[in-house]
Design a protein around this nucleic acid. Sequence first.
DNA 1: ACCTGAACACCGTTCAAGT
DNA 2: ACCTGAACACCGTTCAAGT
Lengths: 187, 187
Amino acid sequence: MASATRPGSRLGSDDWVAAAYDRFREEGLGGVRVEAIARDLGTTKGSFYHHFGDRAELVAAVMDRWEREETDHFMIEADAAPGPRERLEVLFRGIGQRRIPGEDSLYLDAEREGVTDCVREVTDRRVAYVAAALVELGIEPAEARRRALATVGAVLGLEQLARGGVGPIMAGRDEMQRTLLAIMTSP
Amino acid sequence: MASATRPGSRLGSDDWVAAAYDRFREEGLGGVRVEAIARDLGTTKGSFYHHFGDRAELVAAVMDRWEREETDHFMIEADAAPGPRERLEVLFRGIGQRRIPGEDSLYLDAEREGVTDCVREVTDRRVAYVAAALVELGIEPAEARRRALATVGAVLGLEQLARGGVGPIMAGRDEMQRTLLAIMTSP
DNA sequence: ACCTGAACACCGTTCAAGT
DNA sequence: ACCTGAACACCGTTCAAGT
């Protein structure tokens, strides 16, 4: 395991978070299991409860790190784009994309794991960013906000459908993004 | 439990499905647990494996029944609407709605539970129905198909966001539906 | 043909006992 | 202050033994 620590030394809560994050990266939140991580660390699951109240606390710590590290990359990328239209293209691509395998099921897992607030915050930021771009394109703020919500919702929903294998989505991903962009920016 | 059978009599696989469906209704697929259902039926979990190969088979049977019973209601309702526009309104409302608590997490659970094919089939039917209504409104078939996908995706995605509590979605559900309808039917 | 009871492997959580 | 080891309750799955 990537996070194996020098054996013999005692563990801190950060060691548990690091090992948990490794598992999240590859398997999603479902992979963040106390007993399995204890195995990764070469210790017993009993010792876990000297660092955390329960598994939910560990999951929350993992999500904190995820939000800090993996969340704003494509907004930074979009900022470099010349105009609002190009910015939207980058955003559409970015919202639907997953950088690490663990993110694949994040929206699916968030509710069951009690981390909807974290995911919501990230989504809020994205909606606001899309809305700002639409305002730049001449759409009035209230309508832009509604369309931004619809857009982000559509990208997430299509992602969901694509995983379910509905129709030609997987094949026509770019096509769908162009369609969305055209519809959402129409006057 | 609703499905408690006359005690003493032996059980058939249909008894297991009935009891499982009761649990699905109230708790979703996550509630379909062999040991818990055995308790509901007043038997042991060991006996379950004389009727099914594994839990996945039971889950598949539950989904079969769900697809037969809960899936086409709002299309029938929509058929009664006077025109395509009214039909779309009924559809938008219907797609986002859940009739039983267990459906709340269906899209979330489908992948983990290996029942994406069933959900996909239902979604396919809905996309086709929306596309047909858009064609009736004068949009050419290929574009109608793309927009129908975007629409169903958006409704599902917004549902997901609403559960996560993003922004004013919960408050402005009707408003979002009107916005979607306006955007998707624009020439 | 169906069922029971125990077993096993995997979880999360608690806690007495050790260092 | 941290850790181990065993325990408990909950899962899915298997299987010998019973009816």
